[in-house]
């Protein structure tokens, strides 16, 4: 199968600091590829470059075979890329339902004038979108709160809201930035299932997550970053055993944790 996302020699520098340095990898349909590394390793910066928010100083990003390096985020969405954010980017004064409805933008948006005049075509789209959004909210367990404003919800709920909103784009490639942050054990379990389910439907998933147990359990492939450089990659077992990774990131305590999770 051809990869859906190909990242080649991607680099970015802020001032003199190379936040991401010569990173390459690919993600195929149904794969869950995790990016791990200590804080400041460049994981979120990598995500921001792939999703078009930062312009890389070097290297390229290909989506479904097409070069999209430095393309505008909304054009990437058109090509099938969706993402969530580490430090929440919800629409605070819109309801949860409306938040997920916004995720349907590319399917429903067309002309401004029919929307202004409330033409039947516009109203029909809104009804269809609302139905689809409601079922997505149900999928992440938030259907009961559909009509509450996002700003009234807990952190964990908003994390799941972002996943539902990203799914609304019907993405081919999904970037998840710490989806389990702030979730309790039960919620993490649910997110674990949800991610596996999404991947099995053929979506390529790129994941940043600090919960090593989760990462080791669901990843098909892991990339370890340190100071912006790729220091290791491979299947979970190999990466966890890699001495560089252990030195840079996991440390003695982490190693035990990983071995425990692995066992």
């Amino acid at each position: 199968m051809t990869p859906l996302l190909e990242v080649a020699n991607l680099s970015i520098a802020f001032g003199g600091l190379r936040a991401v340095d010569d990173v390459s990898f690919e993600v195929r349909p149904g794969q869950i590829v995790s990016v791990i590394g200590p804080n400041g390793a460049g994981k979120t910066t990598l995500f921001n470059m792939i999703s078009g928010l930062y312009r890389p100083t070097q290297g390229s990003v290909r989506l479904v075979g097409a070069d999209v390096t430095s393309a505008e985020p909304h054009l990437l969405a058109r090509r099938g890329l969706a993402r969530t954010f580490q430090n929440l980017q919800v629409f605070p004064s819109m309801t949860l339902l409306e938040n997920v409805m916004v995720g349907h933008h590319l399917q429903e948006a067309g002309a401004t004038l029919p929307d202004l005049f409330g033409l039947p075509s516009s109203r029909r789209k809104t009804r269809a979108t609302a139905e689809s959004a409601l079922s997505l909210l149900a999928r992440v367990g938030l259907e009961k709160a559909a009509f509450r404003e996002a700003l009234t919800m807990s952190y964990g709920a908003l994390k799941r809201l972002e996943i539902a909103r990203a799914l609304a784009l019907r993405p081919k490639i999904l970037l998840l930035d710490e989806p389990a942050a702030g979730c309790n054990a039960v919620e993490t379990e649910e997110i674990d299932q949800l991610i596996t389910e999404i991947a099995s439907s053929g979506v390529a998933i790129l994941l940043v997550e600090h919960d090593m147990k989760l990462v080791m359990k669901i990843s098909s492939h892991i990339i370890a970053l340190d100071h912006g450089r790729k220091i290791a990659e491979g299947n979970p077992g190999d990466v966890a055993a890699n001495p560089d990774v252990i030195a840079a990131y996991l440390g003695q305590k982490g190693q035990e944790q990983v071995l425990h999770a692995d066992g």
Binding site: G52, H74, A77, V90, P92, V102, E108, T112, L116
Partner: peptide, 30 residues
Amino acid sequence: WLALNLFDSPTGRALRALHGSDVAARTMGI
């Protein structure tokens, strides 16, 4: 009437979304 139509329409949602989070709105394809 026109403004209220717009509020609950695809365009209106896009406008309110970019108000709430410019970055998220862009990644939603807006």
